[in-house]
Design a protein around this nucleic acid. Structure first.
Lengths: 189, 189
DNA sequence: TCGATGTCGTTCGGTACCAAATTGTACGGA
DNA sequence: TCCGTACAATTTGGTACCGAACGACATCGA
């Protein structure tokens, strides 16, 4: 993942687009968010997670359930940042490994609750400190203060998308229908 | 994706782990990197990319080839931050849409070059400004200076993983064999 | 010249992942 | 009681994604 120098990229973009103005700083932030996310994810998967046969997402789901206790699946999906359809599959995998247990909701037959098994609890108690040590490792070049500032900036981006993203998308489409997703299951008509 | 308040999360973690010390700032940075990455990706896919039937990764690959010109696939994969195996599939998809062209390397029969078709060029010329506008939208809560500081912090994390990640992983295993990946194709023996 | 060794891109086995469709349950009002 | 609407999780159809294995080619030394 050898990164092309930013300066060079800017020149190349300029050559491609000529007069059209580009927001470089914003472009760099977005690009680096994704580079960092995949670098960190890859590192953690290949260090602490591989040995216990978990994917990143599997770990995140375990984490959410561990911290929250028995929780409805839709909330777990939301907290873990994946769709509920994806969670169904991930939860099935975790269940088959004996780390997670499904229970039906006491009063609402539609809902399903997720909780850790004893084995899951035990795993997380030893695994989380290792995981956190890798978080510390990847963030080592940043001071505590820089970590906080960076985390805060990223949080503001998340909030921006969550609060204004929907409106923005509607505005962009400007009345046109929402353009069906080409991959995945076809829309009915 | 309603985010649990950080303070609350810390208390819950503390309750779970008791005396074991946790690096909270580093934990928050890693968590927010991933939240931001998926929020941004989702927003962009559902705004500008859906209409032209591209996934995030497909766009990134197009971008790399657009900026770099005709390029060997292994370099495209590296620059795009995906494995070469994944690139084979993505390139196939893009080729089938007529956006990308494969050429054999003039002197080395193993290599394959990727270049945009005219259609690909045309698409990027109109698509990239739209894409960049969404980058500006998601980063809107940050000043230009904050964008630079955040991008820089993220870049340092990427560099940290790239320069010390391998050593770190070896150190963690401490002589043990590398723990086979359980999912995916089985190791030979 | 030929074999060992390395490096390409591709194939393969498997999970992850999304959004639409589907199925099942809840709950209000007629 | 029955119907319609709302909301729950699951299924479905498709791409993305990784890393190991593979086959084709390159390169170097004997």
């Amino acid at each position: 993942m050898t990164q092309r120098p930013i300066v060079e990229t800017e020149q190349l973009v300029k050559a491609k687009l000529g007069e059209i103005p580009i927001r470089h700083d914003q472009m760099a932030v977005v690009a680096n968010i994704h580079r960092a996310a995949s670098a960190v994810r890859q590192h953690v998967e290949n260090s602490v997670l591989r040995g216990v046969d978990l994917t990143w997402t599997g770990f995140v789901v375990l984490w959410v359930v561990w911290i929250s206790g028995e929780t409805e699946t839709r909330l777990v999906a939301e907290e873990a940042g994946i769709s509920k359809g994806t969670l169904t599959g991930v939860a099935r995998t975790l269940e088959s490994r004996g780390l997670v247990r499904r229970t039906e909701h006491p009063s609402d037959g539609r809902r399903v609750l997720l909780a850790l098994t004893d084995e899951g609890e035990t795993l997380m108690r030893t695994l989380f400190p290792d995981f956190n040590a890798e978080e510390a490792f990847v963030a080592a070049p940043l001071s505590a203060e820089e970590c906080r500032a960076t985390a805060d900036a990223l949080r503001r981006i998340v909030v921006q998308v969550e609060t204004h993203g929907e409106d923005r998308r509607l505005e962009l489409l400007d009345g046109a229908e929402p353009a069906p997703r080409r991959s995945g299951r076809r829309a009915k008509n």
